[in-house]
Amino acid sequence: MTFTLGGLRTILRDCAGEPENGDLDGDVATLTFEDLGYDSIALLETLSRIEQELGVAADEAPMDELTTPQALVDYVNGQLARVTAAA
């Protein structure tokens, strides 16, 4: 199982709405959440939703490092791979 940018877009839209700046369907992978207008609580909500859907624990996530959609997707995939390897 891998988590994609498309999957993140769906979750973001649902739990934090459209970005204040720019188009979520555009080239947003390396823009920061801050630049897109998603604040820390929107990110927290997004992580919580990812936990509900994929089982990646939200409270262990290094939020300070997850500043862009790509960083978040990579982190989630890393966690999913660890779970798969452990199993």
Partner: peptide
């Protein structure tokens, strides 16, 4: 209102 604020 902006969609950003709807879920919140």
């Amino acid at each position: 209102i902006p969609s950003r604020l709807l879920p919140a």
